[in-house]
């Protein structure tokens, strides 16, 4: 309903209609349709994720007047939906910035959810003529992109950093714009981590198509064919690195993500090799190769989950990578050579 509006909060079309607020500013629902929910599912699996956005501008929730609170958010539709479904029975304004379809935190890191865009959007929407109050409520995670002092100085609006989670925003408003330390702290619950795993898995699976293509070619010259067991062993470490490690993150011993992924990958590899009989005589080179190669794959995939986590610092990730990457590349390289030696030269059934 919001997407189809031709005006999207621009002032010029209000003149044509002769009416101001009623026609100019789209009113959005606080309940999600089946289509919205299907949309969530799609982007969680990485389908059309970079183009899931809404028109930036001003939106109304409920029946706001000139003194209603103004909430600022991003134009990623997943973000917009997550926010508006928490606003039932509230009357407020939503000022949606053009973050190029990226969520608040990531966009703040890039500067698109930033001081300039906020000031610019206040002007473009004519917000100062629509509301008489001069307060903006920003999501707390937008603070890494927005300088409250500069916004106040240049736009006259004072910025309040609200809560981390949209689900706390009603309480925040009800308590007179006060957030508890709990509301200000970012979390990373099992559910938070779980919803992020399909994208990781889909991305790894796409890259794996290349690996499968190479193995198909190798099979043409192989003394021992890569088969379904090799595939299962490999698919297992991909799942370990992209799904299992993120899910079990807090309970796996250690700190570095790559280490955690390597550890679980090693356990899976030992199990798979034992199950497929590759610890038997004649497969020694293959077993050694896979034990070096497979855990390094899950280590790498798990390391990439630092980008999805809510608590890794760039300095920390850099330190982790300086140690882990050479080990991963070395181990995977030697492992791959050993596997190829067995496959191309030594051979063997299974």
């Amino acid at each position: 309903m919001s997407k189809d509006c031709c005006c999207s909060g621009e002032l010029d079309c209000s003149a044509e209609r002769g009416e101001f607020r009623e026609t100019n500013i789209p009113v959005v629902s606080t309940t999600l349709s089946a289509r919205d929910i299907f949309g969530v599912l799609k982007v969680r699996f990485g389908i059309g994720r970079m183009d899931y956005k809404i028109e930036p501008g001003l939106y109304a929730v409920g029946n706001p007047d000139d003194n209603s609170p103004v909430l600022v958010s991003a134009n990623y539709k997943l973000t917009f939906d997550a926010l508006r479904k928490e606003l039932s029975s509230l009357d407020c304004w939503l000022l949606i910035l053009d973050t190029k379809g990226v969520n608040v935190w990531c966009a703040a890191g890039k500067g698109t959810f930033g001081t300039e865009e906020l000031i610019n959007r206040i002007e473009k929407t004519g917000l100062s003529e629509i509301v008489t109050n001069r307060k903006l409520i920003l999501p707390q995670l937008g603070a890494s992109g927005v300088n409250f002092n500069e916004v106040a100085r240049r736009s006259g609006f004072s910025v309040m950093f609200g809560t981390v989670r949209a689900s706390d925003i009603k309480q925040f408003i009800a308590d007179g714009f006060k957030a508890t330390p709990e509301m200000r702290t970012v979390k990373f619950t099992t559910r938070d981590r779980f919803v992020l795993t399909p994208v990781e898995l889909v991305s790894a699976a796409k890259n794996s198509l290349f690996v499968l293509g190479v193995l198909f070619l190798v099979n043409l010259f192989a003394a021992r064919q890569f088969g379904v067991y090799d595939f299962i062993a490999y698919a297992g470490v991909v799942l370990t690195g992209t799904v299992l490690t993120p899910l079990l993150l807090p309970v796996i011993p250690g700190k570095a993500f790559s280490w955690k992924g390597w550890l679980l990958g090693l356990l899976w590899s030992i199990f798979a090799l034992w199950r497929f009989g590759w610890f038997a005589q004649g497969f020694g080179i293959l077993a050694a190769g896979y034990l070096l190669l497979l855990p390094s794959v899950s280590a790498y995939l798990a390391m990439n989950f630092t980008g999805s986590s809510t608590y890794t610092s760039p300095s920390g990730v850099l330190k982790e990578m300086r140690i882990a990457l050479p080990l991963i590349i070395g181990s995977a390289g030697v492992g791959a050579i050993l596997v190829l030696i067995q496959t191309l030269i030594i051979g063997g059934a299974i």
Binding site: V146, N149, N304, T306, G307, S308, T312, P314, E320
Partner: peptide, 20 residues
């Protein structure tokens, strides 16, 4: 970014391996 007297300094960035 939001310290009014610039008392804080940090090499800010993204803690994301693939970005690095």
């Amino acid at each position: 970014l939001n310290c009014p007297v610039n008392a804080l300094e940090v090499n800010a960035g993204v803690g994301c391996a693939s970005a690095i």
